[in-house]
Amino acid sequence: MHENMEHLIELPQDRVQEGLHAALGYFVEYMERPRDANEVLKDIQQSVPVEMLPMLF
């Protein structure tokens, strides 16, 4: 890496925040992994809860 590169993410100083950041990292890795045909067939489409609609639009 380049020496003068700025950090894109500030690491949390709080243990709780550190745990949340780690959990989010694991979740993103899990979501980005390739899925096999069995998992794809088990997917069930679900409607978005009404409360979340403002976030989507």
Rank of each mutant, 00 (worst) to 15 (best):
N38S: 15
N38C: 12
Q46C: 15
R35A: 11
I9W: 00
P34L: 09
F27N: 09
M55G: 05
P34E: 13
M5N: 13
F27Q: 11
R15Y: 04
E10Y: 06
V48Q: 02
Y26G: 05
A37I: 02
F27H: 07
R35M: 14
K42F: 09
E10N: 14
V28S: 06
A37N: 12
L8C: 02
P49N: 08
P12W: 13
H7K: 13
V50Q: 12
K42I: 04
Y30C: 11
H2Y: 06
H21Y: 14
L53V: 05
M5W: 06
E6Y: 10
I44K: 01
R33Y: 07
R33A: 11
V28D: 09
Q13E: 15
A37T: 04
P54L: 01
E18N: 08
E18C: 05
E32Q: 12
R35G: 05
H7W: 10
E32Y: 10
D36P: 01
E39A: 12
Q13C: 05
D43Q: 14
R35F: 07
I9Q: 06
N38K: 15
V48S: 00
V28H: 04
A22P: 02
E10S: 13
E6A: 03
D43C: 13
G25F: 03
I9E: 04
E32F: 10
R15C: 06
M55F: 04
L53R: 13
Y26N: 01
E32H: 10
E6C: 01
V28G: 00
P12F: 06
D36G: 10
I9V: 15
K42Q: 14
M52T: 03
F27I: 03
P54K: 00
S47F: 02
F57G: 04
